[in-house]
């Protein structure tokens, strides 16, 4: 055993706050919710993420809950600039390595569509293992004040075309999303993590901007 002596009063870093109060129960429920979000895309699912935590986490509760459920010691996580302060929290609770560039991340946490890296710059997966592409958790896109464009959503998981609005995604996202979908089966999947709600955009989903 390497025994370089370390004095007993030295901590490794700032003390992070507590994470999910009931890790096992919460992560099960959040995972199930995430599955539902991807299975029925572009559909807003309500969920009390706040209730999963004691003191507020340093990320929006929906983002934090998803990150703590999905990340582990093998999934490098990239944090967008507004989320940078949450590094110790994630490193402690998820044991997640922090990626310095989005292209090296298994999970990207973006605080808003403005801070979302170009989707093509993310890991697109591998022809034999397309599932190994980056998963994006995008905050700030499902807020009540969102004013994005209206999409017509269609694809696997939707019995019929669905109007998808009440989000903060604009034409730039629409353009990127079309390119993403064109590279199917490669490409990234996106979770829209809002205030008390979640929606999933799997790479197989078509989002067609609808003229208003």
């Amino acid at each position: 055993m390497p025994t370089k002596p370390i004095p007993a009063n030295q901590n490794a870093g700032p003390i992070p706050g507590p994470g999910l109060t009931d890790y096992v129960g919460a992560s099960q429920r959040v995972f199930r919710l995430a599955l539902s979000a991807m299975a029925r895309p572009a559909h807003r699912l309500d969920f009390d993420f706040d209730g999963l935590f004691g003191p507020s986490p340093p990320l929006p509760p929906s983002v934090a809950a998803l990150a703590l459920t999905l990340a582990d010691h093998l999934t490098p996580v990239w944090l967008s600039p507004s989320f940078a302060a949450a590094e110790p929290f994630l490193a402690f609770h998820a044991s997640a390595p922090i990626a310095r560039v989005p292209g090296k991340a298994a999970i990207v946490l973006a605080a808003s569509p403005k801070e979302l890296p170009e989707l093509l710059s993310l890991n697109q997966g591998d022809p034999r293992y397309p599932d190994r592409s980056t998963t994006v958790i995008l905050g700030g896109a499902l807020e009540a004040t969102s004013m994005g464009i209206t999409f017509l959503a269609t694809g696997p998981g939707l019995a019929e075309e669905t109007i998808f609005s009440d989000h903060g995604l604009g034409m730039d996202f629409a353009r990127q999303w079309e390119l993403n979908r064109a590279s199917y089966p490669l490409g990234v999947d996106v979770f829209l993590a809002g205030d008390g709600c979640l929606a999933g955009l799997p790479r197989s989903l078509a989002l067609i901007p609808k003229p208003s």
Partner: peptide, 8 residues
């Protein structure tokens, strides 16, 4: 990771 050193 939170300790930055190996422990038994």
């Amino acid at each position: 990771p939170e300790l930055g050193m190996p422990i038994t």
